[in-house]
Amino acid sequence: MNIKEKIVKGGLFVSALISVVVLLIVIGYIVVNGIGVISLDFLLKSPYRFEYGGVFPQIIGSLFLVALCLLFAVPLGVASAIYLAEYAPDNVITSCIRLFVECLAGIPSIVIGLFGLVFLVYYLGFGVSMLSGGLALGFMILPWTVRASEEAIKAVPRSYREASLALGASKWQTIRSVVLKSAYPGIITGILLGIGKAIGETAVVLLTAGSGLESFLPRSILDPVASLPVYVYMLATQGQTSAAYSRAFGASILLITMFLVMSISALFLRNRYIKRMSGGRW
């Protein structure tokens, strides 16, 4: 290895090292500053002003919002993907739809939040509520769901479809019983990406779902709902005491943990499915 090679290799190694260190600093800083407030009370009580109580409604609210968002975006996204991959004719209109989905994926979340506020909250009259928040989050992750699902469906080998059709199955039977079954891991990955985006999303939820400090659980989907990211935002911008900052960091730890738990369980599910599909017990 000559000297130039060595310099390149060394430079790349240092870059990688810096990336890891930055990540460790961020996580370490959050943990060090937030771990102190984590207790059973923090998990199970409602917040009281900026410095007291827990974040129970925030945790539940975040879960509700993500669930509602998936309820909307997953069926719609998968159905659209099936249409695009299997039925749409290969023409200009279809290409336009694809381009449109790409564009939708690139819209900044604050713009989606603004749209949710004006269209869902005011125009449709859903108010600042769990319904508005869940739908707006759904708009945000819909293009990801469509794209990931379409790719997964297209990756299913042609030979499976042919085998099914040659047995006298209709196109829809083939899609339902063979194609979707094989595309499932890819679709799960898309949903996982969506969950990751939705659970940490602040701007959209801030404008559509609630102020973040709610100390109650919503009784219907038309009630405002608290969420962890907005809680963190509120404390960071308005708390201005060190107690408030510690709570913001504590809530951040929960947020990261929730993200990790969901990602890991989705990954686990996906890997188990892939294993089952390729040998081993069904």
């Binding site: 080998p157 030979s159 499976y160 042919e162 085998a163 099914s164 059709l165 040659a166 047995l167 006298g168 199955a169 209709s170 039977q173 019983s177 063979v178 079954k181 094989s182 599909m277 390729s278 069904w282």
Partner: peptide, 29 residues
Amino acid sequence: LRKKVGMVFQQPNPFPMSIYDNVAYGPRI
């Protein structure tokens, strides 16, 4: 027609399912 005229392909192309489900696939649909 395709029920009456079956086909076996060049590459073995079982579905990613159990032996049982592969054979039962046609009758089921």
